[in-house]
Design a protein around this nucleic acid. Sequence first.
DNA 1: ATATGTGCAAATGCTTTGCAACGCC
DNA 2: GGCGTTGCAAAGCATTTGCACATAT
Lengths: 137, 137
Amino acid sequence: MQRNTRQRAALLDALSRQDDFRSAQQIHEQMRSEGETVGLATVYRNLQTLASSGRLDVLVSAEGESLYRQCEQEGHHHHLVCRVCGRTVEFLAPKLEAAMTAIAREHGFTDLDHTLEVFGLCPEHSESNESGQAETP
Amino acid sequence: MQRNTRQRAALLDALSRQDDFRSAQQIHEQMRSEGETVGLATVYRNLQTLASSGRLDVLVSAEGESLYRQCEQEGHHHHLVCRVCGRTVEFLAPKLEAAMTAIAREHGFTDLDHTLEVFGLCPEHSESNESGQAETP
DNA sequence: ATATGTGCAAATGCTTTGCAACGCC
DNA sequence: GGCGTTGCAAAGCATTTGCACATAT
């Protein structure tokens, strides 16, 4: 079954100290920079395992890259994700759900499922603010 | 500017005779099988051009592949897609847009973009109906 | 002890790109 | 004739996989 390896523990730890959506490579890089010695393939493999066991949230960015983060909420929810830093806000939208369901029903569709992700620039990275303020000149 | 090449015309024609979402490679294959001689790269390039000029709808499958089809509506809209046959219904949801925008604004996000796709079973493929009527055994 | 997990590097699959030839305008 | 377009093959990326080695249990 599932063994308890240093790498897996390190990955879970990294994920727990981090609540933005990140790509496998970003996560790997971060772990490396924190002194962990982990292979990229291992990160991919573990992320996959964790995701399919429902312990992680996965979302596919507009560019087709898979982004991961630990779940915050159990139930159904959506994400507002910063395109630059990955900062994420979860939100519920029962009205949206209801409206979508209604539309689908009107067309005779059943067994519904949907994806709704919002991408944008968070306050730190908004365009009016992007003149290079993140650094300390 | 934009030139009028045989390949581009063939692509537009192929797209116009087809209303499911398809990958670049599927479209290329179809064109080939219809006797068109077109390079795969050309298909990719033209799909990209057309998509960014808003003449095509693009959607990224869960596997990260880009799927294209011609637009039915000009403006922003969403899709209700049958998981079995790919049958697609476009719909508008101004209230959803407004609600999402509001939520994003509350969190200070700007330059918004979002993906909203609804998947389900169309009337032909609903579960109560799925006993295998599509085939001829 | 032994099945699982890991690391590396090679392989995969989709997509993009460099560059010479091609063909609209 | 010139410049956008094309085609091919090579390059790029994110991700997966084969295989020998390491290691939890």
